[in-house]
């Protein structure tokens, strides 16, 4: 008798094992960690005052004094990058927190109530969908003037549909499960069931989507401050730095504009990779 020993589907197993130790994911986690750290303690660890203009070292290249050089006004690029992390992350954080909370509320009410409430909420979020977030932000800034609040609020509203649509479909699926009926029969109120049972079950998926949204919001806000909108002129901010660096690029010193660009791209990619992987893992665990 021939005895066979074999393992089936090694391809998939390998893929799964590799993703567990993925160097890309690890690198992205490190980037996210460093950027968050900079945002938390940035003002205390900058080598120079990010706003002190030393005209003598304007457009200086990398040196012992200025590790990453200085911009047109002679401000230390490294210090501005570190200090800028806070504004650059705070904005998207605001966008994500607002859109997540509002999106979950809208999606949950739409899915739970159904009928005309669902139609009304779904159609109005679709209306927001049709309107580009950046345009909405520019409009709001034009109406309310400069400051971080206006663009964050506008983008926050613009991001609600991404969360609410996902939440709505998740709640619809969850609601069809008999455990929800069981709680209804037990006499629990709709609010209790939604908050205590449905929300924890759908939260991981929604939060993963929000992590991905964070990257996009960061990019949108950087774009707005590049256009000179939103962030007040002197505040260190990556998008603003790219805008300020334009003159330096014309003089042939691109470093002070390129570095914040690179940082924006890196951070966005890192947040997306970490967020998506989290979503994948959550999806797998649910199976």
């Amino acid at each position: 008798m021939t005895a066979a020993t074999l393992t089936r589907r090694p391809g998939l197993a390998k893929l799964r094992a590799a993703s567990g130790r993925s160097p890309l994911h690890l690198a992205c986690l490190v980037v996210v960690g460093l950027v968050v750290l900079a945002a938390l303690v940035g003002p205390w660890i900058t080598p120079h005052d990010p706003n002190s203009a030393e005209l003598g070292s304007a457009l200086a290249g990398p040196s012992g004094e200025h590790l990453l050089g200085a911009d047109v006004a002679g401000r230390d690029t490294l210090s501005r990058l570190i200090a800028g992390a806070r504004t650059s992350l705070l904005g998207p954080l605001g966008v994500v927190v607002f859109s997540t909370v509002a999106g979950i509320a809208v999606g949950m009410v739409a899915a739970w109530r159904g009928g005309w409430v669902d139609s009304l909420l779904s159609r109005s979020t679709e209306l927001v969908f049709a309107f580009p977030g950046v345009l909405l932000a520019i409009l709001v800034i034009a109406m309310y003037g400069e400051g971080l609040i206006a663009p964050v609020a506008a983008l926050g509203v613009a991001y609600v549909p991404y969360v609410s649509r996902l939440t709505r479909s998740l709640v619809l699926a969850e609601r069809a499960r008999p455990y929800v009926s069981a709680y209804q029969v037990q006499g629990h109120s709709a609010l209790q069931i939604c908050l205590r049972h449905i929300l924890p079950n759908i939260a991981p998926v929604v939060l993963a989507q929000s992590a991905v949204n964070f990257g996009y919001a960061l990019m949108d806000l950087a774009g707005l401050s590049f256009l000179g909108l939103g962030v007040p002129p002197l505040t260190p901010d990556w998008g603003r730095m790219v805008f300020d660096g334009q003159t330096a690029v014309q003089y042939g010193y691109p470093l002070s504009a390129i570095l914040p660009c690179v940082l924006v791209v890196l951070t966005v990619v890192a947040f997306n990779v970490v967020g998506e992987r989290w979503a994948d893992r959550v999806a797998r665990r649910d199976k």
């Binding site: 005895a3 066979a4 020993t5 393992t7 089936r8 998939l12």
Partner: peptide, 17 residues
Amino acid sequence: LPPGAIASGTVRVEGED
């Protein structure tokens, strides 16, 4: 077979394992 399964013995369908 389920993923990661290790099988021994024979399963012959019309004589073929």
